[in-house]
């Protein structure tokens, strides 16, 4: 189990892949988000990744939405040993600019503001993250488990989740 991912060997930043749309977006992000913007980079799949502070998540999401990034891709969580990384991805219908917004949050006891009013599809995605990781979204209209039964205990996609009903299976590696 290693630390959060860094761009590896052979990786080339694809600055300018989206041309002016990408540069303008990054410049606007630096101006509008200010200190909330921890960093940004171009992912190896061509997405512009913004990393913001946890408290700046909501304003960053509002900024992304205001830039015409209207097509919601996914919202998910990564369980690193010391923290969660919450990642939201959306892309623009007009400029095809793909944006990935990440925040680092503590594994427990942190409430993330909801973005269901910005993207319709975030509703079920936030319920899924709540169900599988236990991240609470403040302001969500109907935050309850979605894939697991409501009586389920624990959050299965956490790395420390133990299923007590699981049978012993061989270790492949």
């Amino acid at each position: 189990m290693s630390a959060a991912p860094v761009p590896g060997k052979g990786w080339q930043p694809s600055a300018g892949a989206h041309g002016e749309a990408r540069d303008g977006f990054v410049a606007a992000a630096r101006e509008r988000l200010g200190a909330a913007l921890v960093g940004y980079h171009d992912s190896r799949d061509g997405a512009v990744c913004l990393v913001t502070t946890a408290s700046g998540y909501r304003s960053a999401a509002e900024f992304v939405r205001s830039q015409g990034i209207d097509r919601f891709d996914f919202l998910t969580c990564l369980d690193w040993p010391a923290h969660f990384t919450l990642t939201l991805q959306a892309y623009s219908f007009d400029t095809r600019l793909v944006t990935r917004l990440s925040i680092r949050i503590p594994r427990d006891g942190f409430e993330v503001p909801t973005v269901t009013d910005l993207w319709f599809l975030a509703d079920w995605e936030e319920r899924e993250v709540f169900d599988l990781f236990g991240v609470v979204f403040a302001g969500h209209p109907d935050l309850k488990r979605i894939l697991n039964p409501e009586t389920w205990e624990g959050h299965p996609l956490r790395k420390d989740y133990v299923d007590h009903m699981d049978i012993k299976r061989p270790e492949y590696f």
């Binding site: 991912p5 860094v6 761009p7 590896g8 992912s43 799949d45 891709d73 996914f74 998910t76």
Partner: peptide, 23 residues
């Protein structure tokens, strides 16, 4: 190498995607 990648594709039902993270 550690990193992340996302791919999207037009399936018969719409856009499907896969977000892979490697450590």
């Amino acid at each position: 190498d550690p990193g992340e990648a996302y791919a999207r594709l037009e399936s018969p039902r719409g856009e499907i995607g896969c977000y892979l993270v490697s450590d």
